[in-house]
Amino acid sequence: MSNHTPLETSPPEIFDCQSCGACCAYQADWPRFSLESDEQLAQIPEKFIADDLSGMRFETDAKGQCRCTALTGELGKHVGCAVYEVRPQVCRDCMPGDPECHIARKAFGFAVDDLPDPDIYVA
């Protein structure tokens, strides 16, 4: 990952993460808490935190897909985050087009060819 400070969101005219969501459903051990302070973690509603307090809670949805419980909407069509303003650092660090994005998108069969260069998000 880049050492630059990324923008908080990807501008939709460059890439619309709200039409994807793969990074929020790829693996339960991706959204792990690491750099957050106790005060930051206290802002995330308890219902979205894993029982072992290690990261965000993942559950299987009605379609049998395991995903972060804060992820709303339909993967690959239109998604959002119920805790976007207070999401953990790992979620803030994942940028469209970065290696993690590619891994998650490929796992769901989503295209990666037209993804932007993540360095364009550097503020």
Rank of each mutant, 00 (worst) to 15 (best):
E39V: 13
E39P: 08
E39I: 12
E39Y: 08
L41F: 12
L41W: 11
L41H: 11
L41N: 09
A42Y: 04
A42Q: 08
A42E: 09
A42S: 11
A42H: 05
Q43I: 07
Q43C: 12
I44E: 05
I44Y: 02
I44G: 01
P45V: 04
E46W: 04
E46K: 11
F48V: 06
F48K: 01
F48T: 02
F48S: 01
I49S: 04
A50W: 06
A50G: 06
A50I: 06
D51Q: 07
D51I: 03
D52H: 06
D52T: 03
D52V: 06
L53K: 15
L53A: 12
L53S: 11
S54F: 07
S54K: 12
G55R: 00
M56I: 13
M56K: 01
R57A: 02
F58D: 00
E59M: 11
E59S: 11
E59P: 03
T60C: 10
T60Y: 09
T60H: 09
D61R: 14
D61F: 15
D61C: 15
D61E: 15
A62H: 10
A62P: 02
A62N: 08
K63F: 08
K63S: 13
K63P: 03
G64W: 09
Q65N: 11
C66W: 10
C66L: 14
C66R: 14
C66Q: 15
C66Y: 10
R67E: 09
R67F: 02
R67K: 15
C68M: 06
C68L: 10
C68H: 03
T69G: 07
T69Y: 05
A70F: 01
A70H: 00
L71H: 00
L71S: 01
L71W: 00
G73A: 04
E74F: 02
E74Q: 08
E74I: 12
L75G: 00
L75S: 01
L75Y: 01
L75I: 09
G76S: 03
G76D: 03
G76E: 03
G76P: 00
G76F: 01
K77H: 08
K77C: 05
V79F: 03
V79E: 05
V79D: 07
G80L: 14
G80P: 13
G80K: 14
G80R: 11
C81S: 09
C81N: 07
C81Q: 01
C81A: 12
C81L: 09
A82N: 15
A82I: 14
A82F: 14
A82Q: 14
V83F: 03
V83W: 02
V83P: 05
V83A: 05
V83C: 04
V83L: 03
Y84T: 12
Y84G: 13
E85W: 09
E85R: 12
E85P: 05
E85M: 13
V86A: 11
V86H: 04
V86N: 09
V86D: 12
V86G: 11
V86E: 08
R87H: 05
R87G: 04
R87W: 01
R87M: 00
R87N: 01
P88V: 11
P88E: 08
Q89L: 15
Q89T: 15
Q89H: 15
V90N: 13
V90W: 13
C91G: 10
R92Y: 04
R92K: 13
D93K: 05
C94L: 14
C94F: 13
M95R: 11
M95E: 06
M95N: 06
